[in-house]
Nucleic acid binder design. Sequence first.
DNA 1: TTGAAAGCGCTAACAG
DNA 2: CTGTTAGCGCTTTCAA
Lengths: 345, 345
Amino acid sequence: MTARRVTLPQVADRAGVSLGSASRALNGNGASPAMVARVRAAAEELGYQPDATGRSLRLRRTFQIAFAVADIGNPVYVEMLTAIQEVVADHGYRLLVATTGSTTDSTIALVKGLSTGLVDGLVISPLRVNDALVDALRNAAMPVVVIGRSLDGESFDSVSTDSARGIGQAVAHVLQLGRRRIGFLNGPLDTTPGDARQRGFDTAVRREDFAADVVDAHVAQDFTVAAGLAGARELLGRHLTDGTPLDAIVAANDLLAIGAIKAARELGLRVPQDVAITGMDDTEIGRVFQPSLSSVSLRSSERGRAAAELLLGRLEEPGRPSRRAFVEPTLMARESTLEPEGVTA
Amino acid sequence: MTARRVTLPQVADRAGVSLGSASRALNGNGASPAMVARVRAAAEELGYQPDATGRSLRLRRTFQIAFAVADIGNPVYVEMLTAIQEVVADHGYRLLVATTGSTTDSTIALVKGLSTGLVDGLVISPLRVNDALVDALRNAAMPVVVIGRSLDGESFDSVSTDSARGIGQAVAHVLQLGRRRIGFLNGPLDTTPGDARQRGFDTAVRREDFAADVVDAHVAQDFTVAAGLAGARELLGRHLTDGTPLDAIVAANDLLAIGAIKAARELGLRVPQDVAITGMDDTEIGRVFQPSLSSVSLRSSERGRAAAELLLGRLEEPGRPSRRAFVEPTLMARESTLEPEGVTA
DNA sequence: TTGAAAGCGCTAACAG
DNA sequence: CTGTTAGCGCTTTCAA
């Protein structure tokens, strides 16, 4: 183990040719068939594996891509990660996982740390954004693709979705089911998704055809099940006591929604009969949950794949104008909003 | 964006000192305070970021480590990934995520591909193992830590657990609850975990105090919810029809167990009243599920952390004898086996 | 087509 | 303490 590696000069020696010829032979540039054969044989014999670092230094490319998110544990990011990994691996790139932390400062530090030539490009999905971060991204030493709000006008390649509209779809869905006392359970408002989803809800409420009698919004501490549980206890609880029990909760993501289902159960409410609950992100955990969770799909895999493809495209053609991919949200109606049986329309 | 990067000679020039001095000043080796100040200032001014590739080539270290698993989407691996990422980031290393695929051949190819000097070490959790893979791992150009079965006697650093024993704990648990018709729902037997867990179940069944009346085992196609659902339908179904309905299912992981709960519901069985169900891995998805899933914790985070620490330790002290970390399985009893209320023991 | 040589950006050994 | 120089492993000019 950890044996001294075989280098190209050694291969050249063994083959009795020059270093340059060995390189050319192995990389399939102008070399005679005989040369190729000799060098290949020598390389094989010695178990030669070209050194990635030497190669990178010379080529000024590392064939590495980084994916940076606040928290890799989040199922949404895992989906993106999987998709990105698949795409870049297919193109001979390797994937570095980086954690931004939850602040813009830590994100900026990360971006700077990555700007050291060790990756050829970066896919980032920042939770919070400010001007300094946009600056850091613009000055980064490599191409950047942003997943999320498309920053800074048109200057970055980006893939976005309209989660505000997604919230609108969820609201429309519960209204259509006849629900009239609607709670919105959001995560922190100073995050990109929290902000967008809040706007989505506010817009939905202002629509002419918004027919609810009771509307209430609550901001949970975080986009997690635990925060959703606590937040929904509060949200559901205050309407139980004031005599306007909510019959629907629209949650800003699946984890919050699952927390809300648990809170509803605790309070003796049936889901969906007493209270319909929707999530967002359409994660595995929601699909598998009992009751299965109605959720607005933001197509995380697709966004990941699109981001990877944008990045690879730019690496091939650095000067091209920036592009923006857009993914439509879609509501997936499941058991957490649909009455179990014989609803006779 | 993608601006030409500032190099150390440029910094040296700007500071009016030699290249060597600039390097020393920045790396905090023997340099006078005045020198350090000048160089720092120049570096700051130019926005100098040392080039990772040049550095790596010279140092023969990349400060990168790789984590390789069959499928990063699996919650267990995500937990490990998160833990590993945390540890290595704390020590200034970066984490590369690699996918082995599900065969030994694809895993071997990956290991060889990683043996090109681009990572300083590898943490791998192989799903399937054979001699060729062990060989490839032994000949890898960098230290390897194996999570899972400790391979090849003592020669690798490894972190393992006793999942066979964990299955024994689950069996003991349901027996203690008075269950006497027990089904075992496993995943593919040609995998390391499938094999170990099967042995665990077989051993449990042969124990003197094994008091069940009915014992049956079923192998699902995969370690997934879908496979668990299909497998449990079959397993539960055949005992419903033959008049020996199972009152407990021990599943080989949480995803299978959740599939089993869904199958039980479909068949009109209450969990845990009619059939108690246990999982393994103690994942978030199981903890959050309704009913919350009794599961044998294999402490994935801890195993990830331990693996990362073993690897970092070896990088500091390459010649040290190989070590093995061991993590005890622990049963976490939850609602999927515990009667809801007032069991008056 | 081949060989010789330069050089990517960096650190460390060697003189002074 | 500082400057000069070599060299990590590789690809790619430049001549022959």
